[in-house]
Amino acid sequence: MRPPPKLAPKLILEGTRLTGKTELAFALNEHPRLVGPRKYRYHSPLISAEWCGFTNRPWGHGLINFDESEAALARETYSTWLRMFELQRYYSWLVDRFHLSTAAFQHQAGRPFDFGWIEDRLRPLGFGLVLCLREPSTFPAARAERLEVSGNPAQYDDLSVFLREQEQLRELAARSVLPVLELQVAGRSEAELAEEVADWCAASDLLGLRD
């Protein structure tokens, strides 16, 4: 009997804050339709461009919000992640915010960010984009829920920032050469959202790579 095809989905979750990307990423990283049945927990790659690793302070600069002096560092970091994906192409990778979030932030800062070269390397690896969205009217309730646990509540004072970024991300996703799923998150459980993503991956042939 031939073994079943190897599951090695590669997904980038994009979206503005308060759209549940990180919670969904954790759910997807343990979903049996994406990574197979598990009888015990083990390490599985889940990375983020939101890590603020460029400066030695909380909520400092990173791969999304770098300044002009850090542009070369950001490009090298992206190149490093891409090379890691290429070297381990037959494994699953879940990414919580990546190049579209960078392009949106840098555009607002007046520094256009070319992400074409990134997608040229992501596409042959079978990456897909999941764009997490919510209706504008649902942001206040999401903020209230987040304020109960946030260590930096001031970042949620102005919801108009998130509304603008959400529209920017939709425009950027429309320009992407990767398969894109627009996922409405408001009023839905993580399990429901994960099932929709799994259905989309199966229908889009994104569960693994063919030799």
Rank of each mutant, 00 (worst) to 15 (best):
Pro140Arg: 10
Gly151Ala: 13
Ser176Trp: 09
Ile12Tyr: 01
Glu76Ala: 14
Ala154Tyr: 05
Pro45Met: 02
Ala144Glu: 13
Leu181Trp: 07
Ser189Ile: 13
Gly20Phe: 01
Leu34Met: 02
Pro45Val: 08
Arg17Ser: 13
Glu167Tyr: 05
Pro45His: 09
Gln155Leu: 13
Ala71Gln: 08
Pro37Leu: 08
Tyr90Gly: 14
Ala27Arg: 04
Ala74Gln: 11
Phe54Leu: 13
Arg121Cys: 04
Leu193Arg: 09
Phe85Asp: 02
Asp199Tyr: 01
Gly110Trp: 03
Ser44Ile: 09
Arg57Ala: 14
Val180Lys: 00
Pro124Ala: 12
His99Pro: 05
Glu195Ser: 07
Ala109Met: 11
Ala154Gln: 09
Met84Ser: 12
Glu14His: 08
Ser79Gln: 15
Gly53Asn: 02
Arg75Asp: 06
Pro9Gln: 01
Leu34Trp: 00
Asn56Leu: 15
His31Phe: 01
Glu145Val: 07
Ala194Leu: 05
Thr16His: 11
Pro4Glu: 11
Asp199Arg: 06
Ser137Gln: 14
Glu119Phe: 06
Glu50Lys: 15
Leu100Pro: 07
Ser101Cys: 08
Glu68Pro: 00
Arg188Ile: 11
Leu181Ala: 05
Arg17Asn: 13
Asp157Ala: 09
Leu122His: 10
Gly60Lys: 07
Phe162Tyr: 11
Arg175Glu: 08
Cys201His: 02
Ala173Cys: 04
Pro136Ile: 01
Ala103Lys: 11
Asn152Ala: 10
Glu68Ile: 03
Leu147His: 06
Lys6Gln: 10
Leu13Val: 00
Ser204His: 11
Glu148His: 03
Phe115Thr: 02
